[in-house]
Design a protein around this nucleic acid. Sequence first.
DNA 1: GGCATATAACTCGTACGCGATTTAATCGTA
DNA 2: TACGATTAAATCGCGTACGAGTTATATGCC
Lengths: 163, 163
Amino acid sequence: MENQEKASRIELAASLPVFLCFAVYSTNLAFNRAYKPLLEKLGLTYPQYVALVALNEENDQTVSQLGQKLFLESNTLTPLLKRLEANGYVIRRRDSHDERQVRVSLTPQGRSVFEKVFCGCGTIVDATGLDEQSYVRLQRELIELRDNLLAGSKSSKQDLDRE
Amino acid sequence: MENQEKASRIELAASLPVFLCFAVYSTNLAFNRAYKPLLEKLGLTYPQYVALVALNEENDQTVSQLGQKLFLESNTLTPLLKRLEANGYVIRRRDSHDERQVRVSLTPQGRSVFEKVFCGCGTIVDATGLDEQSYVRLQRELIELRDNLLAGSKSSKQDLDRE
DNA sequence: GGCATATAACTCGTACGCGATTTAATCGTA
DNA sequence: TACGATTAAATCGCGTACGAGTTATATGCC
């Protein structure tokens, strides 16, 4: 009775379909494949598109700000943003008040390509087979799960840093 | 009334937290980070661990069989399996009846490392913050979503092949 | 048997993700 | 002001994903 807290609250069989993490992993692969036909016509990858979404929401963000929203760091974002710049979708320039920071802005072509993909999203949303209620609920549950996981890894990371 | 079917059933604002695909994408990043401390001690990556899970469930599978379970193809799996072999966790050998196929088996070390990670999973399962019921439900919903998405991309791919 | 077709795995090039390190700018404090 | 500490971005190396193409084996049909 007293060691109830010690063991994991959920018993798992050692089989793939039973892992929640594998369900998330494979659903992510599936979403990438669903988006691919829509994106590759425009020379975009899925993470690049996500960056455009974040920039459309708020323009002229620093790399760190973008990173916080996308859960990525500069080692991933810098090359990605350079590719978007090479394709004419964003502009990167040093902040004049703090030259350490780089500010990223959408170009008109960037905004237009974002809108094009956004309008084509309906097909994919429909392919989920979810009604609006399930869609929103699933999304909310995932965000909560993600934030729980990130809170867990962050605290264990701080433990390591402290050593 | 009549064109109700034409438009997507779900209206989205153009904001990141609203995309289900981004919820899945970022939750996948979070799961990877949660598993990392457990896996890197053993020199494993998350996809490598998933391959070990599949092999523990059924040993001596071909690359294609593994690929079907993991939703990956040989261009991804071959290098991954070679790394597992280099670390002594699996053995790869040509099928004597059909030399085109490569059969992959767990070594004793592979089985032992799988068990080690599996036993350490409890912490991560707990970090999800989900009770057993929500865990299982979320997982089932994701699998259904994944399979809907894959069915959608597969049919549109066949359309392309037919052209 | 011989040859076109199909199939399984592999190889290659590109783009993430990320740990580790580097470079450059700013801040804090004496 | 000077100088160590901090911070932001960039760079590097490795391991996935995956489209496209290659190689080797098996199959089907004459």
